[in-house]
Design a binder for these strands. Structure first.
Lengths: 216, 216
DNA sequence: ATTGTCATTCTTGTATACACAAACATTGAC
DNA sequence: GTCAATGTTTGTGTATACAAGAATGACAAT
């Protein structure tokens, strides 16, 4: 319970939104939330204001807060930006790689290999996240790292959908291998290119998924 | 006075921070702010929470809010990310250019030409901003556009410093020309490359500036 | 039957009050 | 003279009360 109730609530509500417990478009009633969490309205409002600032909900003056529904197109756009940022992170990582970062990447990459080999998509989902975070950290750019982590977080629910797709798991891992090679070889441009497509593909896969669901 | 006091205060305080009225490191006292703006502490707190979420200030539990001092290195990192995002925007703009965007770019580019020719760095500062925003819009990616505008806003104070540097004004404009050519020619890769260096240079200039001030 | 207006009710927006924690200063002891 | 402990003060964190605006439903008029 992170020091003050406002922050705790922010994280709590954020998780609820990202896990679809609060559905997109749903109205968030301050009083209801306050009762549910056993606090007064004040910290609830503080949490909501923060989520509004982050862009997860929208507060319309005098009309309450609703969960933002990004919509397939906007999610694709977010993947597009994510791909670009990850590409930059990879490029910087390749140029600035030091021992600690190299070991972190090797370790997380190894864990991905295990879970991919075992076909455990839940484990891979988690290990994959750590692998990408290791690359962000290796970029040695605090700001970039923060931006990447934040976007990654917002895209998390949509990533998860795709790992169940046939062969995606092993394809993803082989892409990781090429990325690691490029970074360790100090080839920034190649790392950038590989990461950009690696992440960009997820946006396209997501579009395909939505398209196939729409025609169904 | 934007509908509700909280938002108004958020914008008001944000501007005060970005214009250095509230200096980096300065402590923001809720009661003082409330008196200054003639409101109670509640909307002040809401504004502060939002600014914290955006990353402009830091609220340490039970110890109040302080204005974040990004520091030269972090500002450089921010320019680095900005360069990447603008590069993407330019690349998309080149591919997706339509009539309206083309006209918007031409118009803002023309205004830059005038103010650059007149040597009016204040006017150029404003026109330059509009020019870049026209490119964001031309990318046809709402999310990217929002991200760019937000980062642009945060970097605004540091951009301003540099336009006074000798020859920067005319150099900047000639870079604009090349960028416009690439976008209008539909050459996404070239537009990306040019924009990346155009913006990246600003980060480097900023570093130079800080270095020269430090040795002084 | 449909539409428009008014009133009621519900929810948000703001203010104020109170509680509690942290920083600071003052005093006393070693 | 210095350090520690305690009291005071200041300012944040939470709750609650009150005001104002929006949604909803009912009733009347066309």
């Amino acid at each position: 319970m992170s020091e003050n109730v406002g922050r705790w609530l922010r994280d709590e509500i954020e998780n609820a939104i990202l896990s679809y417990e609060f559905a997109p478009g749903e109205r968030l009633d301050e009083t209801v939330l306050a009762n549910r969490f056993g606090v007064s309205r004040t910290p609830v409002r503080e949490a909501l204001m923060q989520l509004d600032a982050i862009g997860l909900i929208e507060i319309r003056p005098r009309r309450g807060a609703i969960v933002i529904d990004p919509g397939p197109h906007r999610i694709y756009e977010m993947f597009e930006v994510m791909a670009e940022l990850e590409g930059l992170a990879g490029s910087l990582a390749a140029r600035r790689l030091d021992k600690a970062s190299r070991e972190a990447i090797t370790a997380t990459h190894g864990r991905c290999e295990q879970s991919a080999g075992a076909g455990d998509s839940d484990a891979y989902y988690y290990d994959n996240e750590e692998f990408h975070k290791a690359i962000y950290a290796a970029s040695r750019s605090d700001f970039l790292q923060e931006q990447c982590v934040q976007l990654h977080r917002r895209l998390r629910p949509y990533r998860r959908l795709q790992l169940r797709v046939r062969n995606r798991l092993s394809t993803s891992f082989s892409e990781h291998c090429a990325i690691v090679d490029a970074i360790f070889a100090g080839d920034g441009d190649e790392a950038r290119r590989l990461l950009r497509t690696h992440v960009g593909i997820q946006g396209e896969r997501f579009s395909d998924l939505v398209a196939s669901m729409a025609t169904r």
